[in-house]
Design a protein around this nucleic acid. Structure first.
Lengths: 105, 105
DNA sequence: AATTTAAATGAAAATATGTTCATGTAAAAA
DNA sequence: TTTTTACATGAACATATTTTCATTTAAATT
């Protein structure tokens, strides 16, 4: 494994930093991270399934889902009455992983 | 290397998700990510050095630095007239790294 | 001791986010 | 075809973040 000291940050232009910030901001919220975690473990889930598992309200959940979909983090498809959400930008799992193994937390 | 599909998210409790969200929010900003990048490449830097390299104003830069220091991401020490900032929470480099290698961006 | 340099701080203003509530829409079931 | 179920949406409101500006503090220089 590579140590943090030797992480290569070349090719991280100002423009790319903007984009990274944009994506990080989009997931930097307890409920949204919770949803990402669920979708890391479940491939696809309906909105009501997410609401149940998260213990969150429909409208608020839907707002957060739309938000992450708009930003390219999630995608969804209709299946009958349900909308199934899934994780599109898999890279965010790496973010979650390396933060979850953070001693300081 | 491990693929994203097999990332292990066990032991990521609701409480830890809150903390991760807190840290991500703290770096999810172009200027703050820029500072983190600089401190990944420089070990320690004075505020004025950071201002020059970032092309940012003193006061705003200082606010962002204090903010990240308060949240345990940075640390600093005085050296004469200067305050030298450095990266304390090295784990954030992992975040930056895996987002920088994101195709979608 | 007065001045300059480096950085921090606080309050105000500007902007962005998060949440709630009521309502709309689309598919399925009755 | 009306009703129900699942979800989306928009507006209003509440809250938080970001930025600016003026001022303050602390160390170094004169």
């Amino acid at each position: 494994m590579t140590t943090m000291e030797e992480v290569n940050l070349q090719g991280l232009s100002a423009e790319k930093i903007e984009k990274v910030a944009f994506i990080l901001k989009a997931i930097a919220h307890p409920m949204r991270l919770g949803i990402v975690k669920l979708l890391a473990e479940h491939e696809e889930l309906s909105v009501s399934a997410i609401c149940e598992m998260m213990g969150s309200e429909q409208s608020l959940t839907s707002h957060h889902l739309s938000n992450m979909k708009l930003k390219g983090i999630l995608e969804c498809k209709r299946e009958g009455k349900n909308i199934l959400y899934s994780l599109k930008m898999k890279e965010v799992l790496g973010v979650l992983k390396c933060m979850s193994s953070c001693d300081a937390l």
